[in-house]
């Protein structure tokens, strides 16, 4: 790993948003079954971008395209390009991409090691030569875990509570000082207090990191994100759609087959106050089947 990637994160956020990721015509299929069709969007630096939409619309799949983690899934095939600062991420070694772009998963997945080692192992595998103790402490302080665990850094991370584990996973990611952090429903398995604490943390982190977060919690999305991308599962209606996927799958996917699409991508305020599409409005309208996917699926716009 080159040390040039360890750039100083402490400079102030620039006022005009700079594009960090550019996804173009992303299509993904698992085992010849397409799940995501023609996604094109830009992710801006030092912003929190939220991906929302019903289950199965491919939000998490898209998220995993940004650090090339989909490649490790058996039977996954991706077309289109994702660029990091205008460079195709496929031209990097996958290890470098993942080292520069951190990820936090839906279920807390700390390693079955001590709290200290959970953070130190990431530094060690990447050949960090600085003071590991100091970096561990900084990361734990940033996620507000330091005071809770400083007495016993040797404690096995699996003995922490769920909220603590998830904050440890975030600390583990930010200890590497990534350029962006991908979060796949980081609060899905947490109680409201832990969840609120993580929201606070994300808002603080925004000054230094670019964050992409998948969430089903619309309140969370409204509270912390700067921009929102709304995805939906839709059926194919005509044959021309199939052509875009011909490179992706050998199977003859029938008309009416459901695939994830990007419906709307706009600043959070725009999405919540003036959505351009009826499906978005249906999904966001409070009280009426907020979390039900079937509701918005069945409408046509």
């Amino acid at each position: 790993m080159t040390s040039t990637t360890l750039i100083d994160r402490d400079r102030p956020a620039s006022t005009s948003p700079e594009v960090i990721f550019r996804a173009e015509n992303i299509c993904v299929a698992y085992e010849d079954i397409p799940v995501l069709e023609n996604i094109t969007l830009d992710i801006y630096k030092h912003q929190i971008t939220g991906f929302i939409g019903p289950s199965g619309c491919g939000k998490s799949t898209l998220l995993r395209c940004f650090n090339r983690l989909n490649e490790l899934v058996r039977g996954a095939k991706t077309t289109g390009t994702v660029s990091l600062y205008d460079r195709d991420i496929n031209s990097f070694h996958p290890v470098e991409v993942r080292r520069r772009i951190g990820m936090v998963f839906q279920r807390p997945n700390p390693f079955p090691k001590s709290v200290y080692d959970n953070i130190a192992v990431g530094l060690r595998v990447n050949g960090y030569r600085g003071d590991i103790d100091e970096r561990v402490e900084t990361a734990l302080r940033q996620v507000g875990l330091w005071n809770e665990v400083k007495q016993n850094l040797k404690k096995n991370a699996w003995d922490l509570s769920g909220g603590q584990q998830q904050r440890l996973c975030i600390a583990r990611a930010i200890a590497l000082q990534p350029e962006a952090i991908l979060m796949d429903e980081p609060c899905a398995s947490l109680d409201p207090i832990s969840s609120a604490r993580i929201d606070e943390l994300l808002c603080e982190m925004k000054q230094h990191y670019t964050i992409i977060i998948v969430t089903h919690n619309l309140k969370q999305a409204a509270r912390i994100t700067d921009r929102i991308a709304f995805f939906n599962v839709e059926a194919w209606e005509s044959d021309d759609r199939l052509e875009t996927l011909s490179s992706l799958t050998h199977k003859n996917v029938p008309l009416g087959y459901r695939v994830g699409r990007l419906i709307e991508y706009a600043p959070t305020v725009e999405i919540f106050t003036r959505p351009q599409h009826q499906v978005t409005l249906d999904y966001l309208s409070p009280g009426t089947h907020q979390h039900s996917s079937s509701h918005s699926r069945d409408r046509q716009y």
Partner: peptide, 20 residues
Amino acid sequence: SLRQAGFALGATRWQVVREH
């Protein structure tokens, strides 16, 4: 999930196998 956590931290396959 442990393999994915390892890979997401920028570990190589060998490092994931050895460490986790």
